[in-house]
């Protein structure tokens, strides 16, 4: 078991930009700042929930941390054998040998993340074979054991992914992610492609595995209700940057950034009308193009509390009164409304 105070992963000013190229000569016409200066740290054994809308860069951040993308700048530190290792610029070869087995990833759509041409056994065995962790009978036993761990049966290893339902496929993907006993798993929208009645099963499985094996999760999702349920801390992303971060319940009950408030307010609640919040904040407009973000606060053009300074100065991500961190000029002055404080019916500011 890792010491819970140990930082397992930390990023500093992490940036991943993509060049937009056009035309016959592939000239670079713009830069998409998908991830633009992210500082975050994840402690061993905790779940950090990363929430944001499509195009905010949350998946790119997940892929950059696992070095599927090469960062443009900043650094990623990852603890390997009790030593913080800067993995930002390690070669793929080096990563394979020293880092890969300690971090893994679960993807959104298990139909795409499992190779349909491979049996369940070869899917789950892939990491074990690649790291020469087991072979022959031992390999088969490990696969059987992993299948049991995720709630499937050993004889399922003979089958092919298409013979399973969506939830079961996701269980297979989870078994593969666990194969090398990693400490850290990036879960990139792991339940978004699943039916509502199966979603809870997979969330429960992920939480139970975390306890059982002391796993650390970066849990990426657009669904704040799901993120709230599985996370110890939440970071909210908007246009490539973190706008607010803090302990889960605090973020949901007393958000300190107007975007978090709007996000919470927009979530449709499956409750009867009389239990409903009385006011909903509906943001106007769309998320700006990440190739040309607004000059000041990135949320300013849609912010209902916008002042002149918001268009001019970029707010810093700094600690607030409530004990979380927010990037808003008025974080401490605004009385923002969250969900869950007194039933589902908070009062309006």
């Amino acid at each position: 078991m890792p010491d819970p105070d140990d930082i397992l992963l930390a990023t500093e000013d992490l940036r991943t930009h993509f060049a937009v190229r056009r035309g016959l000569l592939r000239r670079q016409v713009a830069t998409v700042r998908a991830v633009d200066g992210i500082d975050l740290s994840i402690k061993g054994g905790e779940t950090l929930g990363l929430v944001g809308e499509s195009g905010c860069g949350k998946s790119t951040l997940g892929r950059t941390i696992t070095r599927l993308e090469h960062p443009t700048g900043g650094s990623v530190g990852f603890r390997v054998d009790n030593q913080m290792l800067d993995i930002t610029n390690l070669s793929q070869n080096h990563l394979r040998r020293h880092v890969r087995r300690h971090m893994n990833m679960i993807f959104q759509d298990p139909l795409s993340s499992l190779n349909a041409r491979m049996s369940v056994k070869s899917v789950i065995a892939e990491p074990l074979v690649l790291h020469r962790a087991a072979r022959g009978k031992e390999l088969e036993d490990r696969v059987a054991q992993l299948l049991t761990t995720v709630g499937l049966q050993p004889h399922h290893m003979q089958r092919f992914p298409h013979a399973f339902s969506g939830g079961q496929r996701q269980r297979i993907a989870i078994a593969r992610a666990l194969a090398l006993q990693p400490r850290f798993i990036v879960c990139d929208e792991p339940v978004s492609a699943l039916d509502a009645s199966v979603r809870a099963q997979i969330l429960n499985l992920l939480m139970q595995l975390q306890q059982q094996f002391g796993l650390t999760y970066l849990f990426i999702s657009h669904d704040l209700a799901v993120v709230r349920h599985v996370s110890d801390r939440i970071a909210v992303m908007y246009l490539g940057q973190i706008v607010e971060r803090g302990p889960t319940v605090a973020i949901c009950q007393t958000p300190q950034h107007p975007y978090t408030e709007a996000l919470l307010s927009a979530i449709p609640m499956p409750v009867a009308r009389h239990e409903r919040r009385s006011k909903r904040i509906v943001l106007t407009g769309d998320v700006p193009n990440p190739a040309s973000p607004p000059p000041g606060c990135r949320f300013a053009p849609r912010c209902p509390y916008r002042q002149q300074i918001c268009d001019e100065e970029i707010p810093e991500l700094k600690p607030t009164r409530q004990g979380h961190t927010a990037a808003c000029h008025f974080a401490d002055e605004l009385e923002l409304v969250g969900i869950g404080k007194t039933g589902a019916q908070p009062t309006t500011a």
């Binding site: 049991t148 709630g151 092919f160 013979a163 339902s165 939830g167 269980r171």
Partner: peptide
């Protein structure tokens, strides 16, 4: 990893297509 218990006995009965539908039993080829 210790010897793991099945994740949840109830869910474990999770419906695996029984092969009643022909396609379920086949490999890709």
């Amino acid at each position: 990893m210790a010897h793991p218990e099945p994740a949840n006995p109830r869910e474990e009965a999770a419906h695996v297509p029984s092969g009643k539908t022909e396609a379920a039993a086949y490999s890709y080829w």
